[in-house]
Amino acid sequence: MLSILAVDDSPSIRQMVSFTLKSAGYSVIEAADGTEGLAKAKEKAVNLVLTDQNMPLMDGITLVKNLRGLPMYATTPILILTTESSDDMKAKGRAAGATGWLVKPFDPVRLVEIVKKVIR
């Protein structure tokens, strides 16, 4: 089963992401911030990372940079799911190595479509 790491400091968003992705047949690991996400990503390689941007301890873009620094995550799709929609932030996400930028609120059907499109 393909696994996805969902990182978000909002418990309800994590719950909604998990609910959506598990319903589509993926295994989901949850983390509450970038630091916990990085630790869990190192523990077990996942097939896709979906992360929020604004989080305590470590933000999403810093998480992307850290993951891209690890050989095991050099090509893993990493999507940023955030309320941030400025072009400046998107450019920073892209430069950090993110695969895509999704603005909240997310449509569960569209989220699954995007995940199916990019997951390896």
């Binding site: 909002s10 309800s12 909604m16 959506t20 319903s23 047949g25 609120p105 997310f106 569960p108 059907v109």
Partner: peptide, 23 residues
């Protein structure tokens, strides 16, 4: 089961107001 029900999907999208309001 796959999320195919449009009403449930719309409800999930709308419920994310909580995250926006929280922020």
């Amino acid at each position: 089961f796959v999320i195919a029900d449009a009403a449930l999907s719309r409800a999930m999208t709308a419920l994310q107001f909580q995250d926006m309001v929280g922020q």
